[in-house]
Design a protein around this nucleic acid. Structure first.
Ligand SMILES: [Mn+2]
Ligand SMILES: [Mn+2]
Ligand SMILES: [Zn+2]
Ligand SMILES: [Zn+2]
Lengths: 213, 213
DNA sequence: TTTGTATTTGATAATTATTACCATGTCAAT
DNA sequence: ATTGACATGGTAATAATTATCAAATACAAA
């Protein structure tokens, strides 16, 4: 007879309390690890089930952001989030005066809109310290070519100089063989990143500046 | 010697063209199905790999929203999205004058923020038509108790009446046995959703109104 | 043009995250 | 006490993505 009625079981109660207590945004299995300290025999499936049920009931919030794993939030007050592109950590964010700003899109394309979420992303304090694997790739044919280390060094040196430089000026700043430098300058000139206003003098072009931006 | 340089292979080129051409936001395997028409021998892994590489290179965008599957976007122009909570379809959305509004959070909590995303969610036109499974749950102990169908029907009837109603008035609007009605009214009164200003006359309370809201 | 090699591919295995299943257990209302 | 909806733990299954690897390819340099 009774339908869609939730019972407050011991497990569910502990899960809800834990969610209300914690100030972060745990995934199902992160929460499972915490709950096990109180209920060592609880099943991971129970945690998954209850996080789903509690969020359907509106007692917690589900954050479907930042990639693969769902995260949950015990804080019901309207607020938004930042997350880290590297470690996927999620933090609350304060939007200041915009806090209560409600977007109403001009054209909703027939959707019945029930909510809006504002998300920031970037690097968290910890991940900023990590050595950057510099994963950025480029491609000649797409006009997004990446430059090798030597080329980058040379371009950066030229970018810092107001006047056009000779090979010696560059050699003073970059630890490279003179031959390497002139060879790379030729390449860079061909690519349009460097111009030679006078013979043996080189300066960076606008294209060059954006290539190292 | 060369490092982090992307090659424009035939497969990658076709994938990029397809992404630029299509106006929706395909997942890896949705795109795989489309690409197979051009390259029947391509591997799903190649599609996954290239979507990742192309988005790292900034030639397409990765949408990490709305649950499990990643979606990709060939449109690089700054814009935002709506998605359907039911079928997870994603559409572009026009923010009107807010289009170029850049949020700068007051406190970024030490994050180096590289972007902001504004997402709307709700029900797409198709899913609005689907019969609603009414999955909402409640719980007595949390003050979010759900009501059964009969109780909801009765409450809704009362909500539409200006004056207090008798069983007959309710029976006229709701197809239920008179006994059922009075039984449910008693239950609803006990729960505080219905009041009886005069004997055999019932009206909805404020609590009752919010219970069916 | 030829060559050396970093990069990419297809095929497939492995991993990760989540959901489904099921026998058993609990609770509240008759 | 009986009934039936709701839950649980344990585990299998599914879905989505990533890793591995031998063979093929693209492309900078010679
Ligand atoms: Mn939060
Ligand atoms: Mn889009
Ligand atoms: Zn991080
Ligand atoms: Zn839909």
């Amino acid at each position: 007879m009774i339908k869609n009625q939730m019972r407050m079981t011991h497990q569910r109660d502990i899960i809800l309390r834990e969610m209300r207590k914690c100030k972060d945004h745990p995934t199902a299995d992160e929460l499972y690890e915490r709950i096990k300290k109180t209920l060592p025999r609880i099943s991971l499936a129970t945690v998954y089930r209850n996080l789903e049920i509690l969020s359907t009931a509106g007692l917690i919030k589900k954050l479907e952001i930042s990639g693969r794993r769902k995260r949950f939030d015990g804080e019901l007050r309207r607020h938004h989030h930042v997350y880290c592109l590297l470690c996927h950590r999620v933090d609350n964010i304060d939007l200041g005066q915009e806090e209560n700003f409600q977007f109403l899109p001009a054209a909703a394309g027939g959707y019945r809109i029930t909510g809006c979420r504002i998300e920031f992303f970037g690097l968290c304090p910890d991940c900023q310290k990590k050595p950057q694997g510099d994963k950025k790739m480029g491609c000649k044919k797409c006009g997004t070519e990446t430059l090798n280390d030597q080329q980058q060094q040379i371009l950066k040196t030229l970018a810092q100089s107001a006047a056009a430089c000779g090979s010696k000026d560059i050699a003073a700043a970059v630890k490279l063989e003179p031959k390497q430098i002139s060879s790379q300058l030729t390449t860079l000139k061909k690519k349009g990143y460097v111009a030679s206003p006078v013979r043996c003098k080189y300066e960076i072009t606008e294209a060059g500046k954006s290539a190292i931006a």
